[in-house]
Design a protein around this nucleic acid. Structure first.
Length: 591
RNA sequence: UGGGCUAUGGUGUAAUGGUAACACUGCAGAUUCUGGUCCUGCCUUUCCUGGUUCGAGUCCGGGUAGCCCAACCA
């Protein structure tokens, strides 16, 4: 009975693309080979939407014993830069994926050129010398067919000669283009004689000034896939209308290469899945750029940004991101995912990863009145209680650090209430609580003795007595009390820290649509259309006190401020002036 | 209003013609030296309509709603 239970039941079900890959493999397509690619244009920073694509492209290859190339889709030198190439590589590595090799669309510029020449010779491409306005007008609309260009049937020799000139650098950009001769009446707009090449007269990050005419996406992508040996070219749903054209150009290319047999089975194919939409999050590169330019955020790696670098600085682990992507899945439904699912994934992963530390963010002084004035005790704190042995017991070996206890401590202001009532299980007159990893303490019964107030009535100091027999770990110290366990730091043994708390950047669920609607209604662009939906309080900086051990941690260390939330050491942090970013609060945390 | 794609609890996803389920959220409880974690329980679901079938979330027709396509961007 129980024989086959483990492997098959535990295994996560395949998504629809993986199922297709599996059946293609079973049918022996492409010679039983699996090869994918992740093809970003190096014109900006990767965001969480790219992470979903990365997990798919690299994940499929991993799962089915294939390979995945990182291919820089660098066909437009107007926008591309080495800086982005490096950032993209770093982000993918951080996510934990390894590419088989790095390729560039520009590696294929010569092939693409030769192929284009062949297309012209075949009478399948021609040089159009109309203006872009004229061409746009002839294109028709989705409901109206287009009309043929007057240059459509020009002699092949003429097109050939002009194509050569397009790359000479002597022609004005826009003066002519190379178009594929397909069907100006096609219901698919992409078939209405799509542009193959345009003149840019601009140096390229890799080919320098070798080329002046550059191929368009549609004339590059499928062809690069084919030349590289990609079997499954996986992309997002907005490329569905390109699918047919992709197939057509690949078919032409196989013809050019003289590959006519086995034509259906040995070729790259495009598959599409739903891209990531997150509520209260804006993904568009253009608008994200506005935020950085206008100083709404500190940069592309601002912890409020949906970029991989922003998310990293915010304190999400790569594992938490992959967990999230796993949970939302891949379908063909245009979903709007709840940011709460991302936060839940972060909590799930960070719970087993983060080092527990003590940080007091709204400090109020607590004096242990019966504790000797100059005494300092070293106590032991567990780094991570979720680190367990096979029997489920927390491992202590190598999993502790030392904290210091003394007469004057800082605790959270919220942890003391004059009249908290029964439900308030923290400190107050006559109430007893445990200080984490330390002693049980009790406030005097009277309000007057339990705290000192300033002229305005604010509590500035709390008084309590400790039970010397209750130190954590002491025999018999774990007597039951009504109160909760509070976190604290010793006033003379802590460091002042800058704690950056973040709230969502946007006040509306779908900022992209809201901004677009505002633009249409008010005729505004850019930041003016975004302001109405920006949360003015998305960054809240606190000064707090943190235990010394936490202040010494390196940037990007995963921490849990106990009873508060998950925090990450900022790259700006130093042991003298530690800086932390709140990743996400603890569930149900009260402050 | 041309073409393409989509529709399962509040959110996302599964069920591949045969008992609608899982995760998250929310609510309640238990445990706890973190009001966290772990554990238990509860709430809520197949867009509408006709058909095929012994049987439809699944297949077919007709609606409705949403998304994508008219860049010399990718």
């Amino acid at each position: 009975m129980a024989v086959t239970e483990t492997a098959s039941t535990e295994k996560k079900s395949l998504n629809f693309i993986e199922q297709r890959v599996e059946s293609d493999l079973a049918e022996g397509k492409n010679g039983g080979r699996i090869q994918t690619r992740f093809p970003p244009e190096p014109n900006g920073y990767l965001h969480i939407g790219h992470a979903k694509a990365i997990a798919m492209d690299f994940g499929v290859a991993e799962r089915f014993g294939g390979t995945c190339c990182l291919r820089m889709d660098d066909t437009n030198p107007q926008k591309e830069d080495h800086e982005y190439v490096e950032a993209i590589k770093h982000d993918i590595e951080w996510l934990g994926y390894k590419w088989d090799k790095i390729t560039y669309a520009s590696d294929y510029f010569q092939d693409l050129w030769d192929f284009a020449v062949w297309c012209i010779k075949q009478g399948r491409a021609y040089i159009d010398q109309q203006t872009s306005e004229e061409i746009a007008a002839q294109k028709g609309t989705p409901t109206q067919p287009g009309t043929n260009s007057p240059y459509r049937d020009r002699p092949i020799e003429e097109s050939l000669a002009l194509f050569e000139q397009m790359n000479s650098g002597k022609l004005e950009p826009g003066s002519m283009i190379l178009r594929a001769k397909i069907d100006m009446a096609s219901p698919n707009m992409h078939f209405r004689d799509p542009i193959m090449y345009r003149i840019l007269n601009m140096p390229h990050i890799r080919t320098a000034d070798k080329w002046n005419a550059y191929p368009m996406y549609d004339f590059t992508h499928g062809q690069s896939d084919y030349l590289e040996g990609v079997t499954h070219s996986i992309c997002t749903l907005e490329f569905v209308p390109h699918h047919e054209l992709y197939d057509l150009f690949v078919t032409w290319m196989k013809e050019w290469k003289g590959e006519t047999d086995n034509i259906e089975d040995n070729r790259p194919r495009q598959f599409e899945f739903n891209k990531l939409n997150l509520n209260y999050t804006l993904m568009s590169k253009r608008n994200l750029l506005v935020l950085t330019k206008e100083g709404v955020v500190s940069g592309w790696d601002d912890p409020r940004m949906p970029t991989i670098c922003g998310i990293r600085r915010r304190g999400y682990s790569p594992e938490s991101l992959r967990l999230f992507i796993d949970k939302i899945g891949y379908t063909t439904f245009d979903a709007l995912n709840d940011i709460k699912l991302l936060e839940a994934s972060a909590r799930e992963d960070l719970n087993v990863r983060a080092q527990r530390v003590s940080a007091v963010l709204n400090p109020v002084k607590l004096v242990i009145t019966n504790y000797p004035e100059n005494q300092v005790e070293e106590l032991t704190a567990i780094n991570n209680p979720e680190l367990r042995d096979t029997e489920g017991n927390t491992i202590t070996e190598g999993n502790t650090h030392t904290i210091k206890f003394s007469r004057v401590l800082w605790i959270e202001g919220e942890d003391f209430m004059e009249d908290g009532g029964k439900k308030f299980q923290r400190l107050g007159p006559g109430k007893e609580v445990r200080l984490k990893n330390a002693y049980i303490i009790k406030c005097p019964d009277s309000v007057e003795e339990s705290c000192i107030k300033d002229a305005e009535g604010n509590i500035i100091e709390i008084h309590a007595e400790y039970d010397p027999e209750s130190r954590s770990g002491m025999p018999g110290a774990d007597r039951k009390i009504k109160g909760k366990t509070l976190h604290w730091v010793s006033a003379d043994h802590c460091v002042e820290a800058e704690v950056r708390n973040y709230d969502r950047l946007w006040t509306c669920e779908n900022p992209r649509d809201a901004i677009k609607q505002y633009e249409d209604e008010h005729g505004t662009r850019g930041i003016e259309s975004m302001r109405p939906f920006l949360n003015p309080d998305s960054l809240h900086i606190q000064k707090g006190y943190i235990e010394e051990w936490a202040a010494e941690q390196k940037p990007l260390t995963y921490l849990q401020f106990q009873r508060t939330g998950y925090f990450n050491v900022d790259p700006d942090s130093t042991p003298e002036h530690p800086v932390y970013n709140k990743t996400v609060s603890l569930k149900e945390a009260k402050f």
